[in-house]
Design a binder for these strands. Structure first.
Lengths: 182, 182
DNA sequence: TTTCTCATGTAACGCGTTACATGATTAC
DNA sequence: GTAATCATGTAACGCGTTACATGAGAAA
């Protein structure tokens, strides 16, 4: 997967500068990038060279000039092609599961503290995803279908993390029962 | 997260060569590494230098000598420390969700094909995780607790992917209904 | 005869991250 | 007076990947 298409996607809403795109990516609680300049500005330059974007430089005094990029027809076609491409598996790195693999050396209280800590980080994440959904950026007019899709993407993330919570709670209960029985 | 601790974890079962560890990682359907030599052999050398491992070289004729690594007490302590460390959020890169964000340009049949394809890749993944669970590697004797934990890790992955399936099916149905109503 | 297993390692490269650099304006 | 916002970009680095390199013995 490439961040290129995410940038291109946002530019399909309206012309923007790298700085604008950066903010959109940074504000997202679910996009898997930290919105660093290095990637975004390079990607814009590359897509400009590939004629996926046109550039309009607005000269300013004091601050750096704004490089406003606009998606071209070729850009829209590249985006569409990518949107319909063969889907990949989601790739999850769950360090917590790897910790658990070797966690049997921990005492009962230590493991319980680990569960508690995991509940906290996941719970917080859910909270922030919900907050972000309420503070939606300026979106263009959208079809009913697109609105539904975005809602479902949001639900996908929420379900993902809530499953973690249920899973941990279930495990914790079972383990404390095993402990009590022994 | 570091692959170091996964290697260390396997070595806590029994002494092994890099080649052995590589196979264990490669056979795993859920560990997020492709088991490449570059990482594994380097990690072993580094952990040996840090005195987390000792090395015993078994000379052979014809094939390269076997470098058998054994975990030390310092190694076990490092593993335990890591196992009890502050858990991180799982980091998921779901390219499919990013595709969907800009998929409204697709025709109804194209989007349906996309859903079908995603159902397939996720379904296959579930299948392979189940297969791998049946062909367990030679594991050491384990406590009841550890066995339960490993079972729950397995369930975590399965639930994760089955949630994807449910989610897609639900979405697909809803979208075809929206299509019919319009 | 070709492929697989055993067994070690290196080279080149891509993607992503943090931190650095500059500098005016506006808000607290 | 300090911090955030606007706005562009570069440098250094880490982690991970594929591919390369070698070479014997066993299996298909």
């Amino acid at each position: 997967m490439s961040i290129k298409y995410v940038i291109l996607g946002y530019l399909s809403w309206k012309p923007m500068t790298g700085y604008d795109v950066k903010k959109l990516i940074a504000d997202s609680e679910t996009l898997p990038w930290s919105a660093n300049n290095n990637q975004i500005y390079r990607a814009l330059v590359q897509m400009y060279k590939d004629d996926w974007l046109t550039k309009n430089i607005e000269t300013q005094i004091g601050t750096p000039n704004r490089h406003v990029y606009t998606i071209t027809e070729a850009g829209r076609q590249a985006l569409k092609k990518w949107a319909g491409a063969e889907p990949e598996l989601p790739q999850t790195k769950n360090a917590f599961l790897n910790q658990l693999m070797w966690a049997d050396c921990l005492a009962v209280e230590e493991m319980d503290a680990l569960f508690e800590a995991y509940l906290n980080v996941v719970g917080e994440k859910i909270f922030f995803i919900r907050v972000q959904a309420d503070e939606k950026p300026n979106m263009p007019e959208r079809t009913q279908r697109e609105e539904y899709i975005w809602e479902m993407i949001h639900k996908n993330w929420i379900s993902h993390y809530e499953m973690e919570l249920d899973w941990i709670r279930h495990m914790r209960q079972k383990l404390s029962k095993m402990q009590a029985d022994a």
